[in-house]
Design a protein around this nucleic acid. Structure first.
Lengths: 343, 343
DNA sequence: TTGTACGCGTTATCAA
DNA sequence: TTGATAACGCGTACAA
């Protein structure tokens, strides 16, 4: 072990008590200016680094936040982390980052470890494989402050920071309908994940409101990754020509990228043969070929607000359990050719 | 404060000593099977979560690793984090993630906080604004295990996990030359950052080896972000026609994306008027228009190896200070038109 | 097999 | 203003 300097070491060197050193270093009022200067100088010379572990044990406060992500390959999550980072930095909290890799067991394990490290609060976006919300309910019951974001569990006593998934999905689907598409398919997220079923709901509602029939065969569950989108799109492309969708709403951008790849490989063109839309507006969306029509979802803002909410709960400045909605907007690019409007 | 169950609480409930409970929970040998079962059951019922803070104080070991990143918007870093995550997960370490946002002051502060939390080791990729390596030198001297990755500081007593930047940059530049380009420019990283000057070095060497003159005017420092690439490319485009590069080597992919945007806005085409190359082969590279020729740099692998090395140093299974090189490869796509070869 | 005493580094509290 | 003491929750070392 590397030998770390302690308050006592400094105290001994100076021939004073540990408490005086502690007070001097923590800028407490009742310390003689002379002594304080001596202490600070000695601390610097000796390379003192305060031991937060010991302090935490006394204070029952670690100044840490545990972040539980389902994945980090999609740029949405790094964006969220940047927002969280920013809020945490300003309030002097450190982040424990964990990645469940969409595995609920691994997620539970991560949360237990985080609890063990006595994080002051938890920021969670659920793993895809969570069968039900019982674990999260138990977690919230322990009293540890929790805020969900993106993939949330509502009404179990924890605040959530989300977008209006139903409305956003409705918005993009309606845009396709208004652009003239009639046979619209959906590459969906898992039914059990909040954003998966909400986006499906918005999709269905848009069809219904515009008098279009919902066809089960045009919906394929793709998960949230590019590879899933690729496979799912292949499936849609194998439908008999008359049933094949002329437009596809993807549950997120990566899935849309996979879909684009599948369409290209089938030698079809976008949006002439099939229009594709995404969801997130990640960094790639404007750069892919063709540029992707999608819903802009402000990951940074989601992370920022979630962290701010959590910290105010931790610091008991806020007791309200609420669902905070972050605005989204439709970003129209060429992947759903407005040309059709003129058709 | 939420009241957490302690070993003593369990012991009192069972009318036995704290130590027996501790032993039972930590699966030590000398515990009666009956007692162990009782203890484990009681622990479960009471919702016991071992306090690692207390344990760390005794052990002088926290099972945590501090990760210091310069930014996380470029997908390279999330890739690295995934690799680190994986290694850490298997060896049962938790990650403290910090983002210096390219600010050396913020980076130093993050490192001090991490030290304060008594992380067992540090994984660092340097912030762009670090003027010199003195701080890192001091840090390494404290004896805290440190491994640098990507933007490294070599020969100061810490291991590094990097790619051969000089050779990789040489490779992509030589490819342009062999494709027929003669007026090659460079959007460079900061001179003070390891990867910045090494990639510049490789660029220069390739020109020299192929008998091409190095022109200062065709080099613009772009930093590492897309916006910087955009601005820097604008500058190159404003050169008098005869001096304007016919190909540009970008220090990384985001800079290349910015450059692509600038070229497009100038109504020039890629690669006919100007070829562009990147560096990293991030997720976007194959999807942008035109698909980007670039150097594939395996972020996941870099993260994995760096974390493995750090952990073996932490656990004293490895004392060697070394620089580990991760292989790269040239990925040729249409942004540097092989058409030119036929010209 | 089980229990007691003590220490890890810090801070709260009370006394000087 | 300064100091002594106890406590945070756990594990090591030793004793029973």
């Amino acid at each position: 072990m590397k030998s770390n300097v302690t308050l006592k070491n400094i105290a001994d060197e100076l021939g004073i008590s540990t408490m005086t050193v502690s007070r001097a270093i923590n800028n407490k009022a009742n310390v003689d200016e002379q002594t304080r200067k001596q202490v600070l100088k000695k601390a610097r010379v000796m390379g003192y680094s305060p031991n937060r572990i010991a302090r935490s044990l006394v204070n029952r406060k670690t100044q840490t936040i545990g972040v539980v992500l389902p994945e980090i390959s999609h740029s949405f999550f790094p964006d969220v982390v940047m927002g969280i980072e920013e809020a945490a930095y300003h309030k002097k909290y450190q982040l424990f980052l964990t990645n469940s890799v969409e595995d609920h067991e691994r997620e539970k394990q991560a949360i237990e470890t985080l609890r063990s490290h006595r994080v002051d609060g938890l920021l969670i976006s659920c793993a895809q494989t969570a069968e039900d919300s019982s674990y999260y309910k138990e977690l919230v019951k322990t009293g540890l402050p929790v805020v969900f974001f993106d993939r949330s569990v509502e009404n179990i006593g924890a605040s959530c920071v989300v977008i209006d998934d139903v409305e956003s999905s409705y918005k993009v689907t309606a845009h396709l309908i208004n652009s003239g598409y009639r046979k619209i398919g959906h590459l969906s997220g898992p039914e059990k994940v909040s954003i998966g079923n909400k986006r499906m709901k918005g999709f269905k509602k848009a069809l219904a409101d515009h008098g279009l029939e919902f066809k089960e065969s045009r919906v394929v569950e793709s998960g949230f990754l590019k590879t899933g989108g690729y496979k799912a799109m292949k499936e849609l492309l194998s439908l008999p020509a008359e049933n094949r969708p002329d437009a596809v709403v993807s549950v997120n951008d990566p899935v849309a990228y996979g879909a684009i790849q599948a369409v290209r490989e089938a030698d079809l063109s976008i949006p002439e043969d099939i229009a594709i839309t995404g969801f997130t507006d990640d960094a790639m969306a404007p750069l892919v070929d063709p540029p992707l029509t999608t819903i802009f979802q402000d990951g940074y803002q989601i992370g920022l607000r979630a962290a701010q909410k959590l910290i105010s709960v931790i610091e008991k400045k806020d007791f309200k359990i609420e669902t905070i909605y972050i605005d989204t907007s439709l970003v129209v690019r060429s992947s759903c050719g407005s040309s059709v409007i003129n058709a």
